[in-house]
Amino acid sequence: MTHTTFEDPAFETIYQAMANSNVEEVCPLVEEELRKNSDIIKLIDVLSAGINRVGDKFAEMEVFLPELMMAATAMEEAMVLIQPELDNLGIKIEKSGRVVIGTIQGDVHDIGKKIVGAMLKASGFEVLDLGSDVKPNTFIDQACEFQADAIGVSSLLTTSLPFSKELIKLLEIRNLRDQFKVVMGGAAVTPAYCDSVGADGYGDDASGAIRILKDLIS
């Protein structure tokens, strides 16, 4: 695990606030840097390094889902503050991708999916979380509207797996299969099942899901 440090004390403070889950400090510190006309690209790097550190800590069970979610929210809020400055300078930051996630129809387990959502945001993805018990057609309609690159489907119940298969069938019927990568995960899902239904990828855990989405979208 890397422990990043920054020479500029202000940047180091922002990094530490993000990395150590003092997220309420992040936006005021970012506003301060914007007022000082600090290097904006460097500022984004600092925030990214901080949230990556939170992701590493989560993987090592040093922090837990609430801290991960708060850090992801702080990152989103900081980017909202930074965006007008980026627009002024004509700088376009490439996102890792746009992903619609949800727990499939008939299944109300959503904590694993929330972990994936938070880690995706931390990794620079734009995420639309549809919640749990989501019908296959709702996934597709929302993915179209969100202009998603990928659909992430979570299923913890064996008896909800058929709805994941149905989602892929419906994508084919609606001639949208080429438009979205489909990644599946959750306790009931196996790599063999993903192959059998024609999913593009299988995430054995949150880190695995992000790895596979990065590969697929790039």
Partner: peptide, 18 residues
């Protein structure tokens, strides 16, 4: 144990085969 198929059809959450 859990029965997940009946006569070749998948048992779906909330469906009649449950």
């Amino acid at each position: 144990a859990s029965l997940t198929e009946i006569e070749g059809m998948s048992v779906k959450t909330g469906g009649p085969l449950e």
